[in-house]
Nucleic acid binder design. Structure first.
Lengths: 221, 221
DNA sequence: ATTGAACATGGTGCATACATCAATACCCAT
DNA sequence: ATGGGTATTGATGTATGCACCATGTTCAAT
């Protein structure tokens, strides 16, 4: 029984998170009828949601087949991360919002939560902290276009690093703690440019980690 | 009588161009039923097209009211152009495709067409040349994510400069000729980085022109 | 045994009727 | 004359039946 009132926005977020959290692994075929039945509505609004997901490059709809969760190939990984590296540097440049004490408080809270991950790891908690950190920084971006691109690339890259976090949580959690520590420091100094560069650096670290995971060893002749 | 076979992709391009060419001025209310009747199909595929346009920030769909062509306010102009300036610099940086003799030939052809605009101005021809130039350069971009963003921001900015071109065609056409001249030179040198910087510069020129058009005079105390 | 086409099945794409929402005009009370 | 609640109108949002497409299967011919 579903007592909740599912709106198209909430369904979109639900499906998006299922894809990002690899609950729907790449290649999964989603059926409109099944989703419609699950959420207790008709196929029409489901189709609208799937179209939005397709715009975000998370799925591709194929006539007569179904809606297929997109694959994670290496070329796309490179393209997304190359862009995120460059986009991050713009965060503090394109007329950002001023950092407030409330922001600082939120960052400190996230840092504390992240530190607890070191001893008690939980994939769901890791995801939620990342999510909150992303929202916190996206809210600083003054340029609306930059914020949209930043947001979309975040969700498009999420599956890559979430899978890596599940495989080898140790290093990933250490990075998250370090990142939030630096962000807290930058927030204390009210330095938005620093926030952008911190993001750039940790995206680069994550990128390196993912690449070495795909290339376990250097090829030997 | 419509003998052509309208596909959703062609309808999307048609409506997009109507918005960009100010055939549908900002504030215009589009009715799904009217569009469905015009293209000889039902409301369902029309709604899909309108959703795509909304994703591109060209319209907003309001329940019970209609689909409204978005307004051109100054804040959005600033955000879009700030981003385009930064994005343009990445064209030659993020693994671009090699420039070929065929590209050079196309650029020279566009330059010739642009020169004819100086004596015989035509708004439609101006639009088509800009369109072809955009496609030519977008095709050089190797990073798929960058290409998508570049493409979307082009169409999002189109209405601003198209309106300016209609108001004062002279300076705009001169800029176009100069831009295509420099692009041709960069193509001859097979220098993709130069292409990106040329784009950046002429976007900046256009930006300055638009800002001065919105601020006819400096405010006097 | 293998290959080929015809067919059965289950999916998305489309068309249409109905439900719901927003704006406006209207009418009655003041 | 005016103000506010109500009815009306026409829009988008939703549900559902049908058409078309893709895919796997089956059966016959070689």
């Amino acid at each position: 029984m579903d007592m909740e009132k599912h709106t198209t926005a909430s369904i979109f977020e639900t499906l998006r998170d299922r894809i990002c959290l690899l609950d729907y692994p790449p290649g999964t075929i989603l059926r409109e009828a099944a989703l419609a039945k699950e959420f207790g509505i008709s196929r029409t609004p489901i189709r609208a949601v799937l179209q939005r997901l397709e715009h975000g490059s998370l799925v591709t709809v194929r006539d007569g087949v179904g809606t297929i969760v997109t694959d994670l190939d290496r070329a796309e990984l490179n393209d997304i991360y190359e862009m995120r590296l460059k986009i991050a540097e713009l965060i503090g440049v394109l007329s950002p919002r001023k950092i407030t004490p409330a922001d600082e408080t939120l960052a400190i809270g996230l840092l504390k939560r992240a530190r607890q991950l070191v001893t008690n790891y939980s994939a769901s908690e890791y995801w939620q902290i990342n999510h909150a950190q992303h929202a916190l920084i996206a809210d600083l971006i003054g340029n609306s276009v930059l914020r949209e691109v930043w947001d979309q690339l975040y969700y498009r890259s999420a599956r890559f690093w979430y899978r890596e976090a599940s495989n080898t949580p140790d290093g990933v959690v250490q990075d998250l703690v370090a990142e939030l520590g630096e962000i807290t420091r930058a927030f204390r100094a009210r330095d938005t440019v620093a926030v952008g560069y911190i993001q750039r650096n940790f995206i680069a670290f994550s990128f390196a980690r993912l690449k070495s995971a795909l290339n376990p060893d250097q090829p030997t002749s």
